[in-house]
Design a binder for these strands. Sequence first.
DNA 1: TCACGATTCAAACATACGTTTCAATCAAGT
DNA 2: ACTTGATTGAAACGTATGTTTGAATCGTGA
Lengths: 215, 215
Amino acid sequence: MTRSDSTTRDGLLDAAESLFAEHGFASASVRAITESAGANVAAVNYHFGSKLELIKAVLERRVGPLNAERLRRLDLCETRVDATLEDVVAAFVEPALAMVRNEEDRTSLARLLGNVFSQAGAELRPVLLDLFGPLIERFVVALERFLPGLAPRQIYWRFHFMVGATSFTVGLGNIAQAYSDGACDPSDADHLERELVRFVAEGFRHGARAPGDAS
Amino acid sequence: MTRSDSTTRDGLLDAAESLFAEHGFASASVRAITESAGANVAAVNYHFGSKLELIKAVLERRVGPLNAERLRRLDLCETRVDATLEDVVAAFVEPALAMVRNEEDRTSLARLLGNVFSQAGAELRPVLLDLFGPLIERFVVALERFLPGLAPRQIYWRFHFMVGATSFTVGLGNIAQAYSDGACDPSDADHLERELVRFVAEGFRHGARAPGDAS
DNA sequence: TCACGATTCAAACATACGTTTCAATCAAGT
DNA sequence: ACTTGATTGAAACGTATGTTTGAATCGTGA
């Protein structure tokens, strides 16, 4: 059995992802993870070297494809002349929301990624910056094209607000259902997507000139 | 020495707050907290009963006054006839940002509150809903007045987005400085406040009629 | 001065943690 | 069938965790 199709390894990643999402990185123990995966306690250290490396592997397995999809959609925005600010925002937001879509297991990957920044200790911060840094650069450049007249710090801050609103919604959208007495329905993904994209786009837009307006 | 002016008790709250913010609830140990407070290991269990009760006490000490201030400012909005949507948003956002303002110690209370929702395990969720439930109700009612024509679920979702953007900024505003190459300066609180309030207000506003317009 | 409740202290409690060890087992290659 | 390297298993490693204990200490009112 070669390293790339080890079912134990994948089982550990799945179990770890689920338990990290449910209890946080620190509180999900190696023992709970290996037991949930039906593997031996030593399996984590054999396949990944340490718990920290396990965390990195879990993150990279999800964040990589997610950000790749975001960039793919951003590319589309930049080639089409009729693209709008909403399209750029959707390129960032929708791939994240798509992970919660039709996801019966709410304790899984979605909440994990939503809370990744908040839960990440100092040792994970560099890893996250590596994973998100290039993405941020590309998005800010694209946004500048759609938001002439805004200072860089304004674009960066508003981008930050977008990340916050998106992460919070992906990670904790289900609690909105609780405190709104059911008015918020996270399973109505179409409505949620539309609301979030327009909320963010309008927030971005204010104070900027129309794209192409050089006045 | 009466219970209300125990310097050990307050020292524990201070130390716990700082360490919770820096390492998270799970990773900050009772031993590290008591040592940082210059107290005995048993002090936490003597004064609070358990680590979980300590966490609750730390939260209530900060969230109580914060939300009281938010409601005080919301009252002002509801009595003044010339209040705007921006004022309502500011009533929610600014008291939170004020905690980071002029705060040299970035590892302290601010980040703690920003990440409270994400870090809270299942056992803290009810506590948070108790602390924030009434606040949310009041704000949603106030927002409905300024946003006629919006469905309740729209107001609730956008409120959710506001909480996300605010929490993320309060808790992790310093990382924006990192990935923006210094373009974002969290110490320029005036600019940050203005940007966040307007971002959120414009996000709220879109699709609603003007206040008082019954068409 | 004494007594009493409140508080602090060092020490130990039982349990959980991440990790390591090394023998047993397995899947292929020869 | 035998060897070899990869993988798994049970057990133990050392350390850290939250909590409890019981004696020592403190402040204060009688």
